[in-house]
């Protein structure tokens, strides 16, 4: 992995202003959302600090606005900007957590299947193939629905974030397994692996210390792309009312809350979280595109 960070890294990066802007946006969002309690002007989900008198305020530049609420307030008088920061935190947590889970499962399955081959490979890859026939969002949705049906309602609401990570992570491992398997099969035949065998290294060491570092490049690109997909999946499930509870809404749940009042002309509760979600996803996609082109210049 390390030798892939070539000397042209900064040159290539600075030559692509779109990527620089995207990376800065991602960094700002991660910082802003992680430290939401510090940056948010209000604590939106603390009933003690919100007042119903402040409800449905338009954004600060519109008529009848209150300068305390930069992006307006929702029906219960919660500050939209603060709710977005807290909501973005959940979106990022689920997005990154779910992809981490997919990477771990996919790496294990892919390395085992690719390195050992034979029956193990055939069985694992058939399972992967069957799951691959179904769109990940549907699997996450059904998995979430089944858990919801089998767990008591309060347990389900309490563990909303881990359950989302589990559902989306389990829905996304197949693609990682496929690319890891393909790379592992190539690496297995290389001379350095034969050399490792010759000096008597245990198989686990060969796989973890010698093969794994050589297949991280494609995994990194896919992981970046999948974070965007996972964030959208989380937002979609929450929008459908299957994700985070409304007492602790993610960006998708905020949009769902806002969408109920579209016809009363209250557009800001939908638009601002929507823009934040879109910018977040586009930024991750653009950075992933750049990393892919950087690691594989032939595609440019």
């Amino acid at each position: 992995m390390l030798e892939r960070i070539r000397s042209d890294f900064w040159y290539e990066l600075l030559n692509s202003p779109v990527t620089v802007v995207s990376a800065v946006i991602i960094a700002l969002m991660i910082i802003g959302c992680t430290f939401a309690p510090v940056f948010a002007p209000h604590t939106p989900f603390d009933p003690a600090t919100i007042s119903i008198m402040d409800n449905n305020m338009p954004p600060a530049w519109a008529d009848g606005a209150d300068p305390r609420f930069l992006l307006g307030t929702d029906l219960q008088g919660r500050d939209v900007l603060s709710a977005m920061l807290y909501g973005g935190r959940i979106s990022l947590q689920v997005g990154i957590g779910a992809v981490a889970l997919s990477v771990v499962i996919g790496m294990i399955v892919g390395l085992v299947a690719g390195y050992f081959g034979g029956m193990t490979d055939a069985v694992l890859m058939r399972v992967a193939e069957i799951q691959f026939a179904f769109p990940p969002i549907l699997i996450a949705l059904l998995f979430n629905g089944i858990l919801k049906a089998s767990l008591p309602a309060d347990v389900f609401a309490q563990a909303a974030v881990p359950i989302m990570i589990l559902a989306i992570g389990l829905a996304g491992w197949v693609q990682f397994a496929r690319i890891v398997r393909a790379s592992a099969m190539v690496q297995r035949g290389q001379d350095y692996v034969t050399a490792c065998h010759a000096i008597g290294l245990p198989t686990v060491t060969i796989i973890l210390r010698h093969i794994t570092p050589n297949i991280l490049g494609p995994v990194l690109v896919l992981a970046m792309l999948q974070i965007a997909v996972a964030i959208v999946t989380e937002a979609t499930l929450s929008f459908l009312g299957l994700g985070t509870p409304l007492t602790e809404p993610s960006l998708g749940a905020l949009i769902q809350i806002g969408s109920q009042y579209l016809f009363s002309g209250i557009w800001w509760v939908v638009i601002f979280p929507g823009i934040m979600l879109l910018v977040m996803v586009v930024a991750f996609n653009l950075v992933a595109d750049w990393v892919r082109d950087y690691l594989n210049p032939r595609l440019r």
Binding site: A228, A235, F263, G274, L278, V282
Partner: peptide, 22 residues
């Protein structure tokens, strides 16, 4: 097309409703 792939479909739907219906 980058935006088309990135925009969550529920968000696009809500935006269309906001513009063309509301």
């Amino acid at each position: 097309s980058v935006i088309g792939v990135s925009i969550p479909s529920f968000l696009l739907g809500i935006l269309l409703i906001l513009v063309f219906s509301v």
